[in-house]
Design a protein around this nucleic acid. Structure first.
Length: 358
DNA sequence: AAAGGGCTCAACCGCACATTG
DNA sequence: TCAATGTGCGGTTGAGCCCTT
């Protein structure tokens, strides 16, 4: 049994709004506000409309300070950049463009910007240069530098990721100093691969200073089923410069593969809603392009971390496709996205979620 | 001038999450 | 704790406009 419809479809008007309806809605909201209940609003306002329709009309058209019309080059750039980082989270993008609505931006992207981008950037390389924070090539791997992943010279730390925190309440991006610290990703304290491996053998890694205190626990259950299992427990994985968590149970979007990967994270503690699980999700910005713009030319990867008080736990992971450690080394992490547990409504994010929980 | 194909964008739909009782 | 309900969001649709032939 599906849920009941929000309104009586037979008795509500659909289609374009008339000026009279607009005036009624505007006048009502200006006088009384929404009353915190959109469903009840149309009846109170004398409108034969669904509450959702009223909400949409107000938010996208009637509310003050809405801007319509041409987007500026600067706005284009912001949209490109954010799309590359966070994908089609139009409400978040809209929050960065005063006066613009998510619907406007979505339409603009779908009808113009996407085409414009593909016209402007006929090759992957050019796309890379358009998004300065992106690279499509893995950093050169030095097989003799076993601690490459963990040393200051590691090219893992030389790029500038797009790093954003999505505030779940305002649905805007937060660029606070704390986050910026993460963004800068200064190198983690030297840790030998062997040392990390020993920590991993307990399923726990702690880095106690203002570094990430990476506490992560391998999910035995998922690992057991993982084609990555051997790789995960193989020091060569460390030498490849990554820690890999694998599970076959999580998939990415069609054609894509999602590989979980841990790189060190700086401490980021949000203490509101302590009881809630926090999820820190990292995505490679290739993912956005790969999944939503460019097709299957590059791989994507993501991981999710749950923060519980004073610790992070890395939950599960992914990828039935990346069985080859060498191939995995071709991947690179380029951008990070931190967002709250409620900031992942879209399938785009859900696809990166893991299947097993502590 | 008419036809028709493409484009735009307002609006709808359905889903997931949040809230409430 | 759970079901019912409200809200917010991204994806999709389709009417109307525009452009080309």
């Amino acid at each position: 049994m599906g849920r009941a419809p929000c309104c009586d479809k037979a008795s509500v008007k659909k289609g374009p709004w008339s000026p009279e309806e607009d005036a009624k809605l505007k006048e009502f909201i200006e006088k009384f506000g929404t009353g915190g209940n959109w469903i009840a609003l149309p009846q109170k306002a004398g409108l034969k409309r669904c509450g959702k329709s009223c909400r949409l009309r107000w938010l996208n058209y009637l509310r003050p300070n809405i801007r319509h019309g041409e987007f500026s080059d600067d706005e284009d750039k912001i949209i490109y950049s954010l799309y590359a980082s966070i994908g089609s989270r139009w409400s978040v993008i809209a929050a960065q463009l005063p006066g613009r609505t998510d619907n406007d931006i979505k339409n603009y992207w779908n009808t113009k910007l996407k085409k414009k981008l593909l016209t402007m950037l006929p090759s992957l390389q050019e796309k890379t240069s358009f998004f300065p924070s992106m690279t499509f090539q893995a950093p050169p791997y030095d097989h003799h530098a076993s601690d490459q992943f963990l040393t200051t010279s590691s090219s893992f730390y030389t790029y500038t990721p797009n790093f954003m925190n999505v505030d779940s309440t305002s649905n805007s991006l937060v660029h606070d100093d704390h986050i910026n610290n993460v963004t800068n990703l200064s190198p983690p304290p030297p840790q030998s691969a062997n040392n990390l491996m020993s920590l991993m053998s307990n399923n726990t890694i702690d880095v106690n200073d203002n570094y990430n205190y990476l506490r992560f626990q391998a999910d035995h259950h998922s690992m057991c089923n993982s084609p990555m299992q051997e790789y995960y427990h193989n020091e060569s994985a460390m030498k490849e410069g990554m820690l890999v968590f694998g599970s076959t149970t999580c998939s990415s979007s069609a054609g894509g593969s999602c590989m979980s990967q841990l790189i060190s994270q700086r401490n980021y503690i949000k203490d509101h809603h302590q009881q809630q699980q926090y999820q820190i999700k990292q995505e490679v910005d290739q993912m956005s392009l790969h999944d939503q713009v460019l097709g299957d030319q590059i791989q994507s990867q993501s991981f999710m971390i749950d923060q519980k008080p004073k610790e992070y736990m890395i939950k599960n992971h992914v990828s039935s496709l990346h069985n080859d450690p060498v191939e995995m080394n071709q991947l690179n992490l380029n951008s990070y996205l931190f967002h709250d547990v409620d900031g992942k409504k879209t399938p785009h994010y859900q696809k990166g979620m893991c299947s097993s929980y502590y």
